[in-house]
């Protein structure tokens, strides 16, 4: 089967999964809502009056205050993280680069925690987001500067840098938990585990805007990322301003990761798993890869969140726990596959 028809099938499959996931997420929960009520409520909001719309105001507010913002947040965060992973892999020329693995997420979490402890929450949700962005940017720059030599990133160096950054950010977070009052402490722990619980529309809007703009920017740069796969020198010979592309992409990754971490905490491995799976299906060309990764990240996040809040009755598991549960074994799978093919990365 050629790549064009695979792309069509992937798009269709993602669309079905997406709509299905959204509807199921809206239906499942402590308060039972029927699929017809969900569709009816959405139609009514669009100004189409119909007989399916729920008459019970509790159902209506459950959907619009609790479930819909949470679903929208999941889609946006998943897209942001998956696109950040794809972009990072492109500029490092390395399929293992991922915001969670190399420490960008924990850098952003450290930034967010500093923000919480010094009390920037008085600035509103934007303040924490700003700190998370700064932390993520710092971590990305650090990893980039340390792990690159002669225009290439050795896998070992990249992963070791990730270990160092994660260790440092972990220590920083532990210290902040130690000195923080109990309210802040709870917030920081929440950041480390990751959750979509309690998403507000005001936060959703910020993440959606960043995710959409970030995805558009990444798609616009897609051709250049393709050329970067030839190596920096060859990309330059083909007219790419490699330095500018790198700096712009690092800011893009920090922005996408930072905004996701700021509102939902550390949700690891989305940026690793999704671009990998998409590449296996439709190939590595970046424009298609980025678009499909955005959709795939959203789908993964919606289903993960569905599991997170329904697997243990009455409890809300941290979503970061679930994605790591999927991502960890996936990482093993990548390692084994690579070892079988070429004896490992070292």
């Amino acid at each position: 089967m050629n790549r064009a028809s695979r792309s069509v099938i992937l798009t269709a499959a993602l669309a079905v999964l997406l709509v299905g996931g959204v509807v199921v997420s809206a239906v499942v929960g402590q308060l039972a809502v029927s699929p017809a009520e969900v569709v009816g409520s959405v139609l009514r909001a669009l100004g189409i009056s119909n007989g399916w719309a729920p008459t019970d105001p509790i159902v209506e507010s459950t959907l619009w205050v609790v479930r819909f913002p949470r679903i929208a947040m999941g889609l946006a965060v998943g897209a942001a993280l998956a696109v950040a992973g794809a972009v990072m892999q492109a500029i490092f020329g390395n399929p293992l680069a991922e915001p969670g693995v190399v420490g960008v997420s924990s850098g952003a979490a450290l930034g967010a925690a500093v923000g919480i402890v010094v009390g920037v929450t008085v600035l509103g949700t934007g303040g924490t987001a700003l700190f998370a962005f700064a932390g993520g940017l710092g971590a990305t720059l650090l990893v980039y500067l340390v792990s690159r030599a002669n225009g290439r990133t050795e896998v070992v160096t990249l992963l070791l840098t990730g270990i160092a950054v994660n260790a440092f950010a972990g220590a920083g977070l532990a210290f902040l938990i130690f000195i923080a009052d109990s309210g802040s402490r709870e917030q920081i722990v929440f950041w480390q585990l990751g959750s979509l619980n309690g998403s507000l529309w005001s936060e959703v809007v910020v993440v959606v805007v960043v995710a959409v703009l970030g995805t558009i920017a990444a798609v616009a740069l897609g051709r250049r990322y393709d050329l970067l796969a030839l190596g920096e020198r060859n990309a330059r010979h083909l007219g790419v301003n490699v330095e500018a592309l790198r700096v712009g992409s690092i800011v893009l990754v920090a922005l996408l990761t930072g905004v996701a971490v700021a509102f939902c905490g550390i949700i690891a491995f989305v940026g690793l798993v999704i671009p990998h799976v998409v590449r296996m299906i439709i190939g590595p060309a970046h424009r298609g890869l980025i678009v499909a990764s955005a959709a795939g990240g959203g789908v993964l996040m919606v289903y993960s969140d569905l599991l997170a809040r329904s697997v243990v009755p009455g409890a809300d598991l941290p979503i970061g726990l679930l994605t790591s549960l999927i991502g960890g074994p996936f990482f093993f799978f990548l390692l084994f596959r690579q070892r079988r093919r070429s004896g490992g990365w070292a």
Binding site: D226, L230, G231, L238, G283, A285
Partner: peptide
Amino acid sequence: ENQVSFPFRVIEVVSMGRAP
């Protein structure tokens, strides 16, 4: 040195020469 980071197909690699 002519490594390619991701498993692009040959025709895709050659087409990259048209990017300019």
